[in-house]
Amino acid sequence: MSSLRFDDVACWRGGRLLFEGVSFALGPGEAAIVTGPNGAGKSSLLRVAAGLLEAAAGTVVREGMVALADENVALDRDLPLKKALRFWARLDRRGDTLPAAMEAMGIAHLAPVPVRMLSTGQRKRAALARVIASGADIWLLDEPTNGLDAESVGRLEQACAAHQTAGGIVLAATHQGFALASSRSVNLSPFVSSEVETRFSTSLEANGFGGL
């Protein structure tokens, strides 16, 4: 039984409170989309969910294996795509699911191409194929649609739907149109503190720029 639960979670990063009091719970087959403006802490929330960052307060409960696709592809640049992906499939002990996952993201024909020759969108699709092949219960997708064409977004939505049908969990951070079946929304905009702007404008006023 896979589940992902945030209980009153706060995240402190770089001497600044990104968000606090975030609570949600996802069970098998459920999905959530994290929304919020740039810098609201969407990526940090995913890193907290992945266990890469400690929550400053609150508890995060994960049941099941986690797979993460963020802005770092983590593939050896000089290796052909298939070999680079197979390294991770081997670590996950899931070599047999890789061809199907590459097919699902439409990168099967790129198998012999070195990773450094791939375009941004193709690399993104490779990272997503790794998530699909991992067989993990909880998918954490950071800006999964960045650099993807419309067809690839469709493929990803299909893969997510299949994953949810099989009892998996999807948590995606995005501010672009990305449709997940029966998903709820985790909105981080209330936590965007206007403190920085306020302080900045006050200091401007104090310096005599108030009339500008």
Partner: peptide
């Protein structure tokens, strides 16, 4: 570290 390999290893436990 830069390419995210260390993160991916950590996520895998």
């Amino acid at each position: 570290r830069l390419s995210g390999v260390l993160d991916q290893l950590a996520v895998r436990g």
